[in-house]
Simulated scan of single mutants.
Amino acid sequence: MAYSFYIFLFVAVVILLSSFVTVKQGTIAVITIFGKYRRLLSPGLSLKIPLIEAIHSRISIQNRSVELSFQAVTQDQANVYFKAMLLYSVINHDEETIKNVAFKFVDSTNLMQALIRTIEGSIRAYVATQKQANVLAQRNEIVEHVKHQIDQVLETWGYHLQDLQLNDITFDEEIMRSMSRVVASNNLKAAAENEGQALLITKTKGAEADGNAIKIAAAAEREAAQLRGQGIALFRAEVAHGMTKAAQEMEEANLDISVILFTMWTESIKQFAENSEGNVIFLDGSTEGMNRTMKEMMAMQMQKETQNKSGK
């Protein structure tokens, strides 16, 4: 009799303890009665009917991640190897959503297999329409394509694709080497073009600088030549004017104007002797030659005075 009492007491304690259910934070428990869905239990301590209600599954509503590694083939028959990280979660805490998550697949292994194969198939289908050279530059396009295709399917399972990261995209070793050579050749080509442009700019700027220097020098030389010409013309005019005036004064004094020519001739001889560097200069020292020179200088002076008067 005592043994029966202890057995009954033990069974009662077990049944009582089994009536209490603890659900962890971030998890929802699915309760069934004889295999049929009954209700959901929120996080915390809850009660259930002993021996009748059973916990079918505990659904995590937290974000979950999985790493993928698979291969795809491009339009031009190049093998592409992907390493990706998938982040997904239950859409919401609604009862229908949790029921889909709990009863859509036999277990989480089957869910994971279907999820991975679906994502791999979507990426392979997209890559098959692209050429090898375009794949590396289309990470974002691939992700957007997969999310657009997969979200509709996952929603029927009660899940939502949070993020998909393509961490690594590689090709066969031979293709990688050829791509490296292409990149290196393009870099060399770009460097050569940049050097050519730099050299062209340098040469152009140098030519412009030289041209400007030549223009400045030519302008300066032209201005100097004008000033020299003006100075020589003024000097000649002053000499002619002085000689004319001297000749008039000597003629009024009844003196021979040949003295002036002789003085100029001797001064010229002196200048040539002092400043010449071995050059030979022939001068007409005759009276006729000096008279002719004097007349020419006087004629030039008279012509200039006539022009000045007419200009006024």
Rank of each mutant, 00 (worst) to 15 (best):
I61E: 06
W157F: 10
E277C: 04
I257M: 03
G289K: 05
N167A: 03
I281V: 15
D210T: 10
G242S: 15
K245A: 12
K309V: 11
A247H: 05
A125H: 07
W157V: 13
M250H: 02
V73P: 01
E249V: 08
E144L: 11
F282Q: 14
A240G: 06
R177H: 12
M264F: 09
F103L: 10
Q75S: 10
E223N: 10
A233I: 00
Y37I: 03
F10R: 02
I201V: 12
R181Q: 14
F34N: 15
E141A: 15
G206P: 01
A137Q: 15
I175P: 07
I119P: 06
L188G: 00
R39I: 11
G158Q: 09
I169V: 14
V66T: 13
E174M: 07
G26S: 06
F10I: 04
N308V: 11
I52K: 14
M300P: 00
T244Q: 05
Q303D: 12
E67V: 05
F8I: 02
A54I: 04
T97N: 14
L234V: 01
I52S: 11
V21S: 04
Q303I: 02
L86W: 06
D168C: 01
A220Y: 08
A240V: 00
T22Q: 08
L161H: 04
T263N: 12
F105M: 08
I28W: 03
L40G: 03
A233D: 15
R228G: 03
E174C: 02
H56N: 09
L47Q: 02
I31T: 10
Q226K: 10
G289M: 05
K104V: 09
I7G: 02
T306W: 06
K309E: 12
E305D: 13
E120L: 06
A246H: 03
E296N: 04
Q77W: 05
L115T: 06
A12T: 14
E288V: 12
K189E: 15
T32P: 06
I15N: 01
S268F: 06
S19M: 13
E53K: 07
M264I: 03
M264E: 14
I33N: 11
S268L: 15
E288Q: 13
V183I: 11
T156R: 11
E144W: 02
R292P: 00
A2Y: 12
I49Y: 08
M176P: 03
N167I: 01
D210E: 15
G196S: 08
G44T: 07
E141T: 04
I61D: 08
V280C: 01
I123Y: 02
F262P: 00
S57L: 05
V182R: 12
E249P: 00
I169Q: 08
L9R: 03
M112F: 10
A114F: 05
M298E: 10
I260C: 02
N140H: 09
T74R: 05
R292I: 13
M294C: 04
E174D: 15
V135P: 09
L45Q: 06
A233Y: 13
A198N: 09
I7Y: 12
A213E: 04
I61T: 15
H145I: 04
E53D: 08
F235N: 04
N194E: 15
G35V: 00
M250G: 02
L234G: 04
D76M: 04
A125E: 13
E155F: 07
I59W: 00
S178F: 05
Q162A: 07
D172Q: 07
L283A: 12
A240H: 11
